[in-house]
């Protein structure tokens, strides 16, 4: 009887929850950004620019988490924080833990935004949040906050 319970539990835990560990924020420079923007052969990259103090950004983070978990074999979610690099351990990391963020989190430590904004997309005016979806043969830029449905529809255009 004990064994049955144990096995049932094992199966449940295997099937149900998001098992990815809580993200660890990693600081990157412009080169790191360039690498993050390179298309992957296997997966669709969903890249979101955000910051802990940006309310509309924080509002849409759960949608990216959900996409990352439910499309984990097809989609790689990268959350690029534009928080001040000196707050990485005092604010960004605690935020990730409190909000159970499990997608990859990079912190772009380069204040000269005018130099890298055009690298991300020539149409970007610098407002956040903003989202970029990249596959090996397609790129789409969303200069706005997204609802879950908009995000899922956008991903489905790539699948």
């Amino acid at each position: 009887m004990k064994w049955n319970l144990l096995i049932a539990f094992l199966i449940l835990s295997l099937v149900s929850c998001d098992q990815r560990p809580i993200a660890k924020a990693v600081a990157i420079d412009q080169n790191g950004l360039q690498q993050a923007l390179v298309a992957d052969n296997e997966k669709i990259k969903v890249i979101n620019f955000w910051a802990t103090w940006c309310a509309p950004c924080v509002e849409e983070l759960p949608y990216f988490e959900k996409i990352g978990a439910s499309y984990k074999n097809q989609v790689e979610v990268i959350l690029i924080s534009l928080d001040d690099a000196k707050n990485i351990t005092s604010e960004v990391q605690p935020f990730l833990e409190n909000n159970q963020i499990r997608s990859q989190v990079l912190l772009l430590d380069d204040p000269y935004a005018a130099e890298w904004i055009p690298i991300v997309d020539q149409h970007w005016d610098g407002a956040i949040p903003v989202t970029l979806i990249i596959s090996k043969d397609k790129k789409q830029f969303y200069n706005k906050a997204l609802t879950y449905k908009e995000l899922e529809d956008a991903i489905n255009e790539f699948l």
Binding site: P56, P118, D125, K144, A145
Partner: peptide, 10 residues
Amino acid sequence: RSTAIGCRIK
């Protein structure tokens, strides 16, 4: 013209 990061107007 120039670009910079800013907070989206809402």
